[in-house]
Design a protein around this nucleic acid. Structure first.
Lengths: 213, 213
DNA sequence: GTCTATATTAGGATAGAC
DNA sequence: GTCTATCCTAATATAGAC
């Protein structure tokens, strides 16, 4: 593998493990067993590395966000879809963990990240819309809009919030709880004919509690 | 006013305006028109300043969080109570804006902040409980628990999220939207006899939209 | 308590040999 | 492409006079 790619790969890992602020260019060079000079030959410091990592994340995340808009999800796909979103975020968690700090230091990323969040809101609105149109839930437009915004916020900050409350929660458990926290908000809107949803939800919750042990 | 207090006051202002990371001890000394040496006579750098600011915030916030547990809120007090919570956070926004970064650098604050969030969840649970017991809403225990957690998350991250999406939103507008985002979640649970809530909510929302212009 | 002047350090970055 | 050696800078911190 090319040095340039190795730098990206190990930087991401280091950032995720140690926190971006606690990783210096020299640290990155060390884990790769190359000299700092060599690192600077490929990237002029941490800034362009972070920039490139973000571009890669952005592309992948945008693809995932567009999927349910291009082709509405089947009812049963919703759960796994939220898993995928949370997993994408987990792969790139160093960025979310210190979101504001990083965006302050890399202004060119701020507007791009903002657009990603806006897309997140639109995707959530579309998902809720589909559930509404297929008669699975019954919800007013205003409440649907609020829910979409809320889902976007939770998708953005849930992993960080979890780490804050329980520093050694495992990622799978955290994601499971996060998905439950999103989906369970549908409960009061579920149409009369779709009560099997509530049974599924309870099962899901029990599974979660068992895993938490 | 004593120099020590002036340092705290102006540091908080600088941190809120510029972001804690962008403020050096020399900056603080400059706005106070004192020498860096003098600053270091009172506080051994930024760390103890931030620590003291947090202790002050913690005391006040804890007092506010305990209020509805000591003496349940009247129905009409709920709205203004959320305003107060958001305003407390706004006064101390530098801390929330770079939460993870700061907690990483000041580990002694991490556990104290965590306890504050846990208290936030308990207070939210108590508020929802009161609404349930007085018959204003009808909600299952599981859903109430989820809602309390969600409220705590929103209270913690809503202001940051707003700044992210709209960098020059004003604090009053942001708080207004935040309160609406919390309260409106009660809608599907409001008991049949309490429909005036929905009217109030709509008025509240319209007022918000007018202010946003 | 306050100042001036200076020291320390660590992160970030480059020049030039190989 | 890679290394070694070195440099620059900004934040942080202290010593000692007043």
């Amino acid at each position: 593998m090319k040095t340039k790619d190795r730098i990206l790969q190990y930087s991401l890992q280091l950032f995720n493990d140690e926190g971006e602020q606690n990783v210096t260019p020299v640290d990155i060079a060390n884990v790769l067993d190359i000299s700092p000079g060599n690192l600077y030959y490929h990237f002029k410091g941490k800034d362009p590395i972070i920039h490139q990592l973000f571009v890669d994340f952005e592309e992948e995340f945008r693809m995932v966000l567009n999927a349910p808009i291009d082709k509405p999800l089947e009812l049963s796909d919703n759960w796994v879809y939220f898993y995928i979103l949370f997993e994408e975020i987990a792969d790139f968690r160093f960025f979310y963990r210190n979101l504001q700090s990083i965006l302050e230091r890399y202004p060119e990323l701020e507007s791009r990240f903002r657009r990603l969040v806006e897309q997140k809101i639109k995707t959530m609105a579309s998902i809720i819309d589909t559930l509404n149109e297929t008669g699975f839930i019954v919800i007013s437009p205003v409440e649907a809009e609020q829910m979409a915004e809320r889902f976007a916020l939770q998708l953005t900050y849930w992993p960080t919030y979890q780490t804050l409350l329980d520093s050694d929660v495992s990622t799978p458990v955290s994601i499971h709880k996060g998905v439950y926290g999103l989906i369970s908000q549908l409960t009061p809107y579920v149409a009369d004919g779709a009560q099997e949803f509530l049974i599924l939800l309870t099962e899901f919750r029990d599974k979660m509690l068992r895993n938490a042990k």
